[in-house]
Amino acid sequence: MTRARRRALSLPALGLVLLAACSRQSPNALDPEGPAAKSVASVAWLMFGLATAVYVVVAGFIIIGALRGKKESRISDGAFIWIGGLLVPCVILGGLAVVTVKTTDTLRKPDANPLRIEATGYQFWWAVEYKDEKVTTANEIRVPAGRPVEIGLHSKDVIHSFWVPQLAGKVDMVPGQRNVIRFTAEKPGEYRGQCAEFCGLQHAKMALLVIAEEAGEYQRWVTRQQRPRGGPSSEREAAGEQVFMRSSCAGCHTVRDTEAQGTLGPDLSDFGGRKSLGALATENNRANLAGWIENSQSIKPGNLMPPVQLEPDELLNLLEYLENLR
């Protein structure tokens, strides 16, 4: 059966998928952007096709059987049981077993010279470390498009699961264990992912973004992160830095090359360059950031950052400082 035919067959059952897939923002596993997700998607299409065929045939027998009334039939009970119950399923399942083994094999094969990253799940955010590059960030993972990526997965507290549907399937982050996930983002773009293992109050808002960039752009980002941090560029920023270091922030957050070395919350060294706030809980803009600092609980109830009381001008300075962290 050709691929097109297969797709055609699964159309009735999956018309809905296509319909919904029109919304381009969906992290749609059937709209894959990398080889790992692609091979799974083709397995999925194969199975949707098979499933539709099995369903139509078997349901057909049931419905016709019920409607046909008492008539003689050339199909004996034995034929139903032996052919329908045993033979055909065994053939189909044998085929599926072969597909399983082959696909699994290719998916598990390590790539040559991958980009190595270590990601750690926290309630309810992600720490991201580029070991070779000695760069640390959080919640948004930048990768060069086209280069294979290998992420070591860890957890600091409970079990989380790393899932970016358009790039690969899930792998759990289990405390005391290092699992590995491999994928390649073929084209530049942003791929939304989300924690897939229930991990507590804010499991729902523990999302992440994989940002695939042209190799050059990615390299620029890395170099910027490796450069020593210069001092504040304005008075307000300097004042903001003071606020950050003096109030509780520095106890929980790290800003590279400063005295802020806390590890309870996300590394903020490149925070100004992030698109999102609170593991994609909301967009990173001034209003949201101010709201987050005053009371992050109203944006992401149950997250582990406490509200911080600040004077209005302190807050303004702090915002200035945070926005300029790159």
Partner: peptide
Amino acid sequence: GVLFFCLIATIWRGEV
């Protein structure tokens, strides 16, 4: 599958 087709066979030649 066997369970399924035994029941289908029952229906097939019965009168519902």
